[in-house]
Nucleic acid binder design. Sequence first.
DNA 1: TCTATGCTTAGACTTATTCTAAATACAGAA
DNA 2: TTCTGTATTTAGAATAAGTCTAAGCATAGA
Lengths: 138, 138
Amino acid sequence: MKHNVEELLSTHGVKPTPQRMVIAEYLLSTHSHPTADDVFQAVKGKLPVSLSRATVYNTLNALVAKGVIQEVTTEAGRVRYDANMSDHHHFVDIETGNVIDIPAGTLNQIKLELGDQYKIRSFHVTIFGEVVGGKAKE
Amino acid sequence: MKHNVEELLSTHGVKPTPQRMVIAEYLLSTHSHPTADDVFQAVKGKLPVSLSRATVYNTLNALVAKGVIQEVTTEAGRVRYDANMSDHHHFVDIETGNVIDIPAGTLNQIKLELGDQYKIRSFHVTIFGEVVGGKAKE
DNA sequence: TCTATGCTTAGACTTATTCTAAATACAGAA
DNA sequence: TTCTGTATTTAGAATAAGTCTAAGCATAGA
């Protein structure tokens, strides 16, 4: 399906400029959990004008702040971005480093109980392992 | 209890130099999940000689590689260190940023089943929320 | 004591990200 | 349509975290 990126941005309070559109389009088109530089490289040729890294960072930060995308951290110190905002967790292939989305419902049982002292707002499971046999779709 | 840091390092194949000892001692003494710079600041006065940041990074990397400590990521892009190597997860206080260890046994049910395609090596749960009432011991 | 190896140091370097100042785009008022 | 203010984008400078380098030390074993 084709995403209506312009509307997606507008409804989240982000003015849809050409730069923001191509960045958001790219993020929606991939499951590869790109870094900021990956985004810059993928997108820089797609505009009639030159694209500044500052714009990429500004846009990514704005999209995160408005809840259009989220940050994902799998390796220490590297920030990746994910336009999949459904309830899900991440599986990291320890051989390739690929990051695969795991729908929350797929994890049989996750019940977190910590007593009254802790009010849980959200949680995230990062799973490390290997993908066996036929390549898991990325 | 007093840790025998020298022995801890030796048994993990890390030669216990004075620099490595004070760094490991500091990590074992705190539950604050310090960053590399936190470690540098905390430790730099404790030696008769000056301490280089390079030594702090070298030491932290060596301790991680040898399994004496582990890296923890809670905020995107920040690496923290944790000398608690028991099976546990992390609770991030979204108001203060404090990171609290949660023993694995405390989380009632965590059963991850992903089918044959994924071989799970390990997993980690990061919980975000607020600590209510009496301060949780840090 | 000599020597080889490994450790530490200061500072240079790299990489990721943010900041700055100037130019541009554009919506709404006149 | 023109004016004007605000937001956006740009290039490059600045900052921050971490790594690399070359030289000097420390030390274990011959």
